Amino acid sequence: MTAIKHNTVNADWIMDHFMNGQNEHPTDCVASLPTAGSTLPQKDVEYYQETDAEWQKQDVPVSGFKKRKLVLHVDVNNTILVSDTATEQGTRAALSSYFSSVIWGKINQLDKWEWLSDVPSVLPPCDEAVNFYSVFGKDEDFFDSTEGRCFKSIFVDHLQKLEWPGPADEILSVTGEDGKQYHRILPSFFWLIKTLCLQGREFSILLRTMGTDLYPVLHALEFAMRGGHPQFKDLQMLSFPVNSKTGRIRCNKREIVLSTETERISTLKDSRSIYQYFNSLSGISGFQDHFDWWARNSYTGKGGKPFWVDPYDQNIQHVFIDDNIRFTDDYNIVHPLVFTKKGGIQTRTAPASEFYDCCLIQTDLLNAIANQDYFIKKIQQCEEKYDSYLYKLQS
């Protein structure tokens, strides 16, 4: 086995070299790097290098500040997966359906549809704008219609970016309506996992869906983490386990119950119980949320996926990523519950606007498809905004 030189390097160098597959050590600049035991700038990170199928890590002190553990609650459909077995939507239909929800217009005085923006966006461009889907519903021929033709090139470009780069893989690819193979899980999601691990972050991922895709997604993630993904073979070097046994979350007026094969956790006597359980998890886990409860509450945040935030807990930040998060509460799939006192059990329902892009991320699926670093940049944005939120709260 060849010897490894250990040094700390700037985070930008890691992103530009190591994470793009250029694993060579920068020997020409070793002399200018800080040595182990010296005081390091806050932006410095630990240097990782792979050799002979191993990653070795040097314990280097980083100045003063330890970042919070991240607990990432991640939706499945239209967040990391562009297909839906429950509705039998293939990749093309699922992308088309999503696309129609992020293009905006209005019915004008002549009772005709009028576009208010030619750029897709998760937020409306103005107060009077409504998305195309909310007015006309699902239209599989939309991009060949007079109204939709102007967006066809954007749609086709993103569909091409979803194509699987090789022969069919029964675990990691799906067959589209056109017979082509597409990614089952977005590459940007694997990039998120890899980046956080390389940064030495403590984090866990909780898949939270009201659908039926948990098992195949967890199976695909487990396979990829063993080195099965051709674009992310180095994931096998990471110690990030996948729990393939799923749990479920059910709500009623009295309590919220999380159940697994071996546990039943209720908020009836302790409203912090599920929050603390989530805090204790590591790796990737999956939970099916309560669709009927959301429907009975008119698809508002009140009946959405319960999501606890404790602003008095300095060691953890929870972040929820879901395409059905909204800035307003009239249609929202997440129910933010905020603890009102340090160590207390009382919670208040927070408006989504309080934590939007802070603890709540409305998935921009088109961006997640087009940009490999979409998720990691959104997480970084949330951490910065959460710091500001806590500072204002303490002030």
Rank of each mutant, 00 (worst) to 15 (best):
D144Y: 15
F143I: 01
C126Y: 14
V122K: 00
D139K: 13
V119T: 14
G137S: 04
C126H: 14
E147A: 14
P124K: 05
P125Q: 01
G148S: 04
Y133R: 09
S117D: 08
A129G: 02
L116I: 02
P125L: 04
F143G: 00
L123A: 13
S117N: 09
N131F: 10
F136I: 02
T146L: 10
F143Q: 06
S121T: 07
S134M: 13
D141E: 08
E140F: 05
D127S: 11
S121D: 06
D144N: 13
S145C: 11
V135C: 09
L116P: 01
F142R: 05
V135R: 12
E140H: 06
F136H: 06
S117Q: 08
D118P: 07
P125D: 00
V119P: 14
V130D: 05
S134N: 11
P124D: 04
N131Y: 13
E140M: 13
V122P: 02
P124N: 05
Y133P: 14
F132W: 08
E128K: 12
R149S: 09
Y133L: 14
G148L: 00
G137P: 03
V130C: 02
E128Y: 15
N131L: 05
D139S: 10
F143E: 09
D141I: 03
G137T: 03
P125M: 00
P125R: 02
V130S: 04
P120K: 03
F132T: 01
Y133Q: 09
N131D: 12
Y133H: 07
L123F: 02
S121H: 07
D127E: 14
D144S: 15
F143P: 00
E140W: 01
V135L: 07
S145P: 06
P124A: 11
R149Q: 10
S121N: 15
K138E: 15
V130A: 04
L116R: 01
F136R: 04
C126T: 14
T146R: 15
V119G: 10
V119L: 11
F142P: 03
F142Q: 10
S121R: 05
F142H: 11
S121E: 10
E147N: 15
E147V: 13
F136C: 01
R149H: 15
T146N: 07
G137R: 03
D127F: 10
F142I: 03
S134D: 08
D141W: 08
R149I: 10
E147L: 15
D127I: 09
S121V: 05
V122W: 01
P120A: 10
P124R: 03
A129C: 05
Y133I: 11
P125W: 02
K138Y: 10
F132L: 01
D139A: 13
R149N: 13
F132G: 00
F132Y: 08
F132M: 02
V135S: 12
N131I: 07
D118Y: 09
D118N: 15
L123G: 14
P125E: 01
G148M: 03
K138N: 08
F143L: 01
C126D: 09
K138D: 08
K138G: 12
K138Q: 13
D141A: 07
A129R: 03
P124Y: 04
K138A: 15
V122N: 00
Y133G: 13
V119M: 11
S145Y: 11
L116A: 01
C126I: 11
P120Q: 03
S145K: 09
E128L: 09
Y133A: 12
G148F: 10
L116F: 00
L123M: 14
S117W: 00
D118F: 04
S117I: 02
L123C: 06
